[in-house]
Write a protein that binds this DNA or RNA. Structure first.
Length: 130
RNA sequence: AAAGUAGGUCACCUUAUCGCCGUGUAUCGAAUCUUAUUCGGUUCAAGGAGGAAAGUCCGGACACCAUAGAGUAUCAUAGCGGAUAACAUCCGUCCAACGUGAGUUGAGGACAAGUGCAACAGAAAGCAAGUACAGUUCGGCUGUAGUGAAACCAGGUAAACUCUAUGAGGUGCAAUGCUAUGUAUAUUGAAGUUUGAGAAUUACUCGUUCGAUUUCAAAGGGUAAGCAGCUAAAAUUAUAAAGUAAUUUAUAAUUUAGAUAAAUGAUAAGGACUCUGAUUAUUUGGAGUACAGAAUCCGGCUUAUGACCUACUUUUUUA
């Protein structure tokens, strides 16, 4: 049981959204939830591998000009999702693909982003359970 | 001390917890034709962005295209000598310009091959003229004066055309090869008929290669799937020798990222440094720690940028 709990905080290659086809579908057909400055695009998928959720992260080039800043935001988002994803994985029965977008133009600290991530995921659950 | 010139070094550190990436070891499970291989999980171990990784501006390595051949055009380079795989880079040196100086910069081949251009002044700086005076063989023939750096025959200018010498085939790792899935019709090969519309090759010309249609056979568009290419190299460090130096040679040691919506992170505590407020002569509060992220790999150039060190120059002060 202890191993199961520790596994919840991982975010390895399998859980990353990689297929370009799926990403394109997500952007065209996906629905969205947002808690500023975060936005979540999601799509229910039939065929997938073992993991319940595949997630990706995206930061626009217009808002953050330098690659260093973009990387920084992506890492923060990924970290926040990694720590909070148990909210979803415990209660969600379908398979989804996710894409997180960052909308603000300024960099925020980790505590702020993690808080927003929690709110966002709870909002997502409420919306899908209805 | 201030202002400057040249060169070099480092790129905040430590610990804990939770994660990411590939590698290796051990182990567990599954698959296959063999005690071996492949795939997946777990444990442990050692590693995991830069001096510019950036701009993509030069030069190579490497790969493919088979005429990549000849000529023209185009582009690049340009004192002299050297280094290098190569260069528009680097080193030495001469000359010129700038700076009080340490130094910096150079777009430094040729104008007796031809063509073009030239502010102001001047009648005129080529194609058209011409002022004054003097001489005269009476011909706008000769001389002098006036303008100007230069005046009718020479000079300046090649970040003007041009000439000279040297060099350059094209496209780029989304190259290219293999594997998987698997179908319209372009493709390839062979044979028959046809002898020419056209296509490809570097911008053009020549040259070269292909060719229109029918039948048969093979393979294949695309899917940005997977694997290889993919990191051990013009490598790094140390010592010695040669050379003014760039650099070269020899010996020894070391192994140093390989991701692909793209890993190299997050949090906490402590320390270091900088700025700053208070207090005061050692404490304490706050803020900050530049520029910036590998994407086939090297050598440069350019741009961005924090701190420190060394040598030198000028000025001022003191002795």
């Amino acid at each position: 049981m202890a191993t199961f709990v520790s596994m919840q905080f991982t975010f390895n290659k399998k859980e990353k959204l990689k297929s370009k086809k799926l990403i394109e579908r997500l952007f065209t057909e996906g629905k969205s939830v947002s808690v500023y400055p975060l936005k979540l695009l999601y799509l229910k998928v039939e065929h997938s591998n073992d993991c319940a959720i595949q997630a990706g992260v995206s930061v626009s080039k217009r808002k953050f000009k330098n690659a260093v800043d973009r990387n920084r935001i992506k890492r923060l988002l990924r970290e926040a999702f990694r720590n909070q994803k148990h909210i979803i994985s415990e209660r969600c029965s379908y398979k989804y693909i996710f894409m997180f977008l960052y909308l603000d133009e300024n960099e925020k600290n980790y505590v702020f982003i993690e808080e927003k991530m929690t709110n966002l995921l709870q909002k997502f659950l409420k919306k899908t359970e209805k």
